[in-house]
């Protein structure tokens, strides 16, 4: 007799509900992520002060007036962190969206057609593999210049090869299966087979990969901003707030602690969510 795992009989939503109810960290992670998304959306109403308003109340410690204290120019740290959520999440989600779409197209085409298309695409991917992702992003910002759009393009391109690799290897396994054969016999076009039949079956590892990449993209944006290669010197982003506060941390520890705490909380929650999704969707762990 074959003993099935209890989850194998469950499909769709009920499977999610079953595993998420047993996995205690998933609901916590989702709640934290929701809090961050809501503060990004409602920043103008939630932030107690204008994030760029300078006051004479400089480097004051956390108090009732300023819950997380103020920086060297008297700006309210909590308000700056709340507004910073917008950039972090926007960059994190939009970059993964772009690299997911481009990477999947490259990977699916390479895996499905094989031959020359595969060779050219794979050589490109191998070449990208010769650079650490963050170094690619840094170099692209050096070439394109700083700014929101350039940072998004740089980080998206840096992650492209990861998605292409996952998509390609999934397609290579799936294209030999009978349902693809059946679709071909039915007279389905290559486009239809690739994107209607193969892709939905390759979705699980891509979803997990995308979740993990959001956290890497948020870290990447924060690192670029911290190095002065980010969005702009006037937009409050978490990395920039940390960079600005760095010179004052011996007198004002809060400037060095809270912005980083925000980055860590969101990245940790996304990583936990990714881990739960990996269990739920039964995807084999791939650490990088």
């Amino acid at each position: 007799m074959v003993i099935k795992k209890p989850t194998e009989n469950l499909k769709g939503i009920s499977r999610f509900r079953f595993i998420f109810s047993r996995d205690k960290k998933a609901p916590v992670a989702i709640s934290v992520i929701l809090i961050f998304i809501l503060s990004a959306l409602f920043a103008p109403w939630l932030a107690p002060y204008d994030p760029n308003e300078m006051t004479l109340d400089m480097m004051s410690a956390p108090s009732k007036m300023h819950l997380l204290g103020t920086d060297d120019l008297g700006r309210d740290l909590l308000s700056r962190i709340i507004w910073g959520t917008q950039i972090s999440l926007f960059v994190g989600i939009s970059t993964v969206f772009i690299s997911l779409i481009l990477g999947v197209i490259l990977g699916v085409v390479a895996g499905y057609y094989g031959g020359w298309a595969d060779m050219i695409i794979m050589r490109y991917i191998d070449l990208q593999w010769a650079f650490p992702n963050f170094i690619i992003a840094v170099y692209l910002v050096a070439v394109f210049g700083t700014g929101l759009l350039n940072v998004i393009v740089a980080i998206s391109l840096a992650f492209l090869d990861d998605f292409a690799r996952v998509a390609r290897s999934m397609v290579l396994t799936l294209k030999e299966q009978q349902f693809v054969e059946a679709a071909r016999t039915n007279g389905s076009s290559n486009m239809r087979i690739m994107f209607k039949h193969i892709l939905p079956n390759a979705a699980a590892p891509l979803i997990v990969q995308a979740t993990v990449c959001v956290s890497y993209a948020i870290l990447g944006e924060a690192s670029l901003s911290f190095l002065g290669l980010g969005v702009s010197a006037n937009t409050p982003t978490w990395g920039l707030i940390l960079a600005d506060g760095r010179s004052f941390i011996s007198q004002a520890w809060w400037l060095g602690v809270y912005p980083g705490l925000a980055i860590m909380l969101i990245v940790l929650s996304i990583n936990f969510l990714g881990d739960s999704l990996r269990d739920t969707l039964d995807v084999k762990e791939n650490l990088l």
């Binding site: 940390l242 760095r246 060095g256 980083g260």
Partner: peptide, 12 residues
């Protein structure tokens, strides 16, 4: 450890 930005850990 995976979620902590390295530059933040450096500052701490």
């Amino acid at each position: 450890g995976l979620s902590m930005p390295d530059f933040w850990l450096a500052i701490l």
